[in-house]
């Protein structure tokens, strides 16, 4: 069993490396096929100045050579220098800004998972009654209203709240303390929370009518125990399944929230790099996020085995 597990992890990791390589290659060539290049600017450049810049970034090499050089650097874990932030290594950018996105993302996922499971269980218990209708209405709102609207509205709400209170209860934007994180994390996790609530509700309802719950009930197991041991534990499985990809989506998809709340996260770099055609940052963030996503999926598959003993890893 132990050996099988190690072999399984090993195999998944190798698959992961191939996936990341594929992502890197596809992004590299797609990016170079987009019209324009990172050196273009409002101010046109003399051929001499352009040649100097091309030489500095190695853009004077044939494309395939650039690709080989890139793969070589990638294997050494070196993503190169940013085109727009010309003094900074892409590695430094990721190292400094990913922890910010990750911190925000972890909190958002915690909010989402905790809220999703609790609200989902509550709606299932109150099926087809008022609390169920109210929560499900809010869930639909949470899923369908885009995050930039929620972010802007919640920020406006904060301003109003602070003005009414006459002092700053919660910061409107910025980063650096616990209080800066609360609102953006809630906003970031909101749509996931709504999604998980719906998922949790339907899987709870499925289980309420299942054989083993009926058996337990007829045996005279106390309802609280049925609820926690039999229903909740089984119903939570689908939630865990989608949690892995959702973690990656949340930690990488914070662009809007980071912009509105002036948070120095990596999401801003990810999006702005594409707008600026900042080749090295595009590659760096894409490969990094790709690897992160692959890793999260593996972790969730492993976790699944622990929660549900019926799942065999192979």
């Amino acid at each position: 069993m132990r050996q099988g597990m190690a072999w399984y992890v090993c195999k998944r990791l190798i698959q992961g490396v191939v996936t990341v390589w594929f992502i890197a290659t596809a992004t590299f060539f797609a990016m170079h096929n987009v019209p324009g290049d990172p050196l273009l600017n409002d101010r046109a450049m003399t051929p001499a100045i352009r040649a100097n810049l091309e030489a500095r970034y190695g853009l004077d090499q044939p494309l395939f050579n650039q690709y080989l050089i890139y793969l070589g650097n990638l294997a050494r874990g070196d993503f190169g220098i940013s085109f727009t932030q010309e003094n900074r290594q892409v590695n430094d950018i990721i190292r400094e800004h990913f922890p910010v996105s990750a911190t925000l993302g972890i909190l958002a996922v915690l909010f989402a998972a905790a809220g999703g499971v609790l609200w989902g269980a509550l709606t299932a218990l109150y099926r087809n009654r008022m609390p169920d209708y109210i929560i499900m209405f809010l869930v639909i709102l949470g899923i369908s209203v885009p995050s930039f609207v929620v972010a802007a509205l919640s920020q406006l709400g904060l301003v109003t709240l602070n003005n009414l209170a006459g002092r700053s209860l919660l910061p409107v934007a910025g980063w650096g303390s616990v209080f800066h994180m609360l609102t953006p994390a809630l906003v970031l996790g909101l749509s996931t929370m709504a999604y998980l609530t719906r998922l949790m509700r339907s899987s709870m309802l499925e289980i309420i009518d299942s054989d083993f719950v009926r058996t337990a009930r007829s045996k005279g197991v106390p309802p609280a125990l049925i609820f926690s041991r039999h229903q909740l534990r089984n119903a939570i499985l689908p939630v865990v399944t989608v949690l892995g990809p959702q973690i990656a989506v949340i930690t990488t998809g914070g662009f809007v929230v980071e912009l509105v709340f002036a948070i120095p996260g990596l999401g801003r770099f990810f999006v702005e790099a594409v707008q600026q055609l900042d080749y090295t940052v595009i590659m760096g963030t894409t490969v990094f996020y790709g690897a992160f996503l692959v890793l999260m999926v593996i972790v969730v598959d492993l976790l699944y085995g622990f929660i549900d003993p019926r799942v065999r890893l192979q």
């Binding site: 922890p99 911190t103 915690l110 910025g174 980063w175 994180m181 120095p264």
Partner: peptide
């Protein structure tokens, strides 16, 4: 869950302090 969240927020707050502003 709520007490777990409070603990998590507190820990994450310490982590965030090293990466942001204190204005």
């Amino acid at each position: 869950v709520v007490s777990g969240l409070v603990a998590a927020v507190w820990l994450l707050g310490i982590a965030a302090n090293s990466t942001g502003s204190t204005v």
